[in-house]
Amino acid sequence: MRIPFTTMKAEVKRVLLKVGMTEEKAEICASVHTESSRDGVYSHGLNRVARFVDYVKKGWVDVNAEPTLILKSGAMENYDGNRGPGILNAKFAMNRAIAISKEHGIGLVTLRNTTHWMRGGTYGWDAADKGYAAICWTNTESCMPAWGAKNTRLGNNPFVIALPREEGNIVLDMAMSQFSYGKLQVTRLKNELLPVPGGYDKDGNLTSTPGLIEESMRILPTGYWKGSGFAILLDTVAAILSNGLATSGIDKVQEGSCGGCSQIFIVIDPYVAGGKDFVERTLNETVAYIKTSEPAIAGGEIYYPGELSAKTRKENMEKGIPADDNVWNEILSL
């Protein structure tokens, strides 16, 4: 089924108000969940609402918590998220990083003891829409084996890079696994296979069947050993700079996905060195060059990061946002 944007947002907001959020906070969170689904990231949009409600009811997320400043040093600020809603904490951190970069050219905000930020790309789009470059990431509980291992010891640690561009922002939003668990869920709900192997089944065989990977929890690091190494460094840098928990510590908390995680938000004024005309020209030349690639499959199209999201956004605003029947009915019943 397809749900109009305003209908989906209103229903999500109703649910969030029911669990104790203020009008303002419910509005922001409902917007982010709906925008994520609108842009095609269904796994971290509508599909995450019921889980968030469950975490609130269990006391793992405090809807009334606000981030508190722990340390300020030059262009860097460190905050404790106090287990508040991850979306609100991340929005706050990105806005602070933007404000700092206006003064210094670069702003670094670290966030510890926070909760799941839902779609990481949200905060990259926020910065790019305001004319700033951004790099941000989060660590997570262990959900991926290190390269060569069977049991989970690494987070898939979503990583975002965004650049502003008048004809369409360039935004990379990726996990350190070949496919996130959210993507596995969406693909399974559609009764489809992954386009390439995304992990191992319980017998150690590479597979494209999402349910078998969810069962074994042996998702494949992107780039094999490279993704494994990248995940380790993202995790430890986030923990060290925020004075927060690494994946090994989050595992001890045992309070849902990303409960107690650490996050980094870096914002840069991209026009300091060469000016806006230079930046626009460089990005447009790069995009044009990429788009002239010969497709590997006849009739195929080559996309730059963020282009497909923008295309999906336009289509879903016109036709309605796709929603799994069971997921939508679950939201209606909350």
Rank of each mutant, 00 (worst) to 15 (best):
E280V: 05
D269W: 03
M217P: 10
Y304S: 11
L283Y: 11
L234N: 05
M217W: 10
K276A: 13
T286Y: 14
K202R: 11
V272I: 14
I219G: 11
F278S: 13
E294W: 10
Q178V: 11
L212N: 15
T247C: 12
I302Y: 11
G244A: 05
E192I: 06
M217Q: 14
A238L: 10
C261D: 08
I297H: 10
G299P: 12
V186K: 02
D201K: 00
W225I: 13
V279N: 13
E255I: 13
C261F: 04
P221Y: 02
P195Q: 06
A231G: 08
Y271C: 07
E192W: 12
A239T: 04
P210M: 14
M174D: 08
L308S: 14
A310L: 12
R218W: 00
V186H: 04
G204R: 13
A310C: 03
G299M: 04
G211K: 07
E214D: 10
G223R: 08
K276M: 07
G274Y: 01
P197F: 07
S257M: 14
E294N: 09
R188D: 15
G223N: 06
Q254C: 11
Y303R: 09
D203E: 14
C258H: 15
I240R: 05
L189C: 10
G256L: 01
G306N: 04
Y303N: 07
R281W: 01
L220D: 07
Y200G: 08
Y289Q: 04
